[in-house]
Amino acid sequence: MTNLVAGPDSKLNLEKVNVLLVQHNKAELDILTQTMSGLGVWSTRKCVSAAEAQVLASTYEIDLMVVEANLPETDGYDLVRELRRNMNSASRQMAIIILSGYTMKQDVEKARDCGANFVLTKPITPGIMFDRILWLAKDRRPFVDCDSYSGPDRRFRKLGPPAGMPGRRRDDLPAEVGEATQPNLSQDAINTMLKPQKVSL
């Protein structure tokens, strides 16, 4: 992967990315399919139920799954949890976006705890989808497996458990800011940084 930088000129080439769309409403599935094609995805697999999604995710190596939260029978959250737990699936570490019509705080927590990377509130706009995929393509959080959870590391800030507790990692940030290691900026230096400057074009 080449360097991905967020910005208006950021380019995203999704030609080689394998996408799985899980949506029981046909019209919504058509919208998602056209959205993915427009974003430049060549390989899109579609299905209308969690059971079909299980089979496809186990059979093919999927890189990105976009799944409806309110699927009939098994909902999107349970599907994600099962897929993340399936040790035999080549797709278990794929990026996952959950789509929800109305997202309450507990739905976001449910999405985080089932192992999804993102929850997106509908209606989905192509710009938002582009930004989220770009973000996911750059995301290098480790994948965690433990008794109660399988999925991307839920800790965005590496503060880790408190000092002295087991489970701290070498790169966890200290809880305290600590003493400054360089002299403070003078007020003049701060004023210069904040002063409006004319820009020559």
């Binding site: 380019k11 394998n18 990105l64 582009f130």
Partner: peptide
């Protein structure tokens, strides 16, 4: 807890060469 640090399929397969900017992608989707 076991942590895997390897790149995901998406990390590996996304390219920037020959791709679309956001504005181009939005136009194509519309």
């Amino acid at each position: 807890a076991k942590l895997s640090y390897g790149p995901t399929g998406l990390n590996r397969r996304v390219r920037t060469d020959g791709g679309l900017t956001q504005a181009e992608a939005v136009k194509a989707v519309e």
